[in-house]
């Protein structure tokens, strides 16, 4: 598999595996120095906002604690389209820009609604054993999420 295809697959797989609520599988796709962020720009206060920020250990702890919280149990699905992949051979990294749509499907009846749209700005580490997620910034256009959600996108 060529590098570009491997990177594209990694990005898509990260969405599928989260949709499957397979958190261990997700963390296996992340480099040890992984940094996750959800951010958005607020025109109302004219400021960039960070809504969630965790390193790999922080993500693990969030996942481990999830079952102790009261959460909306409706499954969500992440539709990711990889748009650009910029490989830096020297640095052994790649910068990937994808568009993201998140849908939520109710448990009772299975009605699906669009939950959020945005972009995923990823940095991928290109190691000998294949690509790993090094940093992800989920850049949301949607800022109204109703009663919200506990699991990151």
């Amino acid at each position: 598999m060529d590098t570009r295809t491997a990177i594209t697959e990694l990005i898509h797989r990260s969405g599928l595996i989260m949709d499957d609520v397979n958190f261990k599988g997700y963390l296996d796709l992340c480099a040890p120095d992984y940094q996750y962020r959800i951010s958005a720009y607020s025109p109302e206060i004219r400021k960039d906002m960070t809504w969630l920020e965790h390193d790999r250990a922080g993500m693990k702890s969030l996942f481990d604690n999830l079952h102790k919280h009261n959460s909306d149990k409706s499954p969500i699905t992440r539709h990711i389209s990889v748009c650009t992949v910029a490989i830096d051979e020297q640095a052994k990294t790649a910068d990937v820009v994808s568009t993201l749509q998140v849908f939520r499907t109710t448990l009772d009846g299975g009605q699906t609604e669009l939950f959020a749209v945005g972009r995923m700005l990823d940095t991928v580490a290109l190691g000998d054993d294949g690509p790993l997620l090094k940093a992800r910034n989920v850049r949301l256009d949607t800022r109204m999420l109703g009663f919200g959600y506990h699991i990151p996108f």
């Binding site: 969630l52 920020e53 919280h69 009261n70 959460s71 919200g148 959600y149």
Partner: peptide, 24 residues
């Protein structure tokens, strides 16, 4: 401050979703 805020009160915070789920 942003980290403190996000942990419980941000849109993905642990408490805010629970409170909103309650009134929903």
């Amino acid at each position: 401050r942003i980290r403190d805020h996000n942990q419980i009160w941000g849109p993905f915070g642990r408490n805010l979703h629970e409170d909103l789920l309650g009134v929903h």
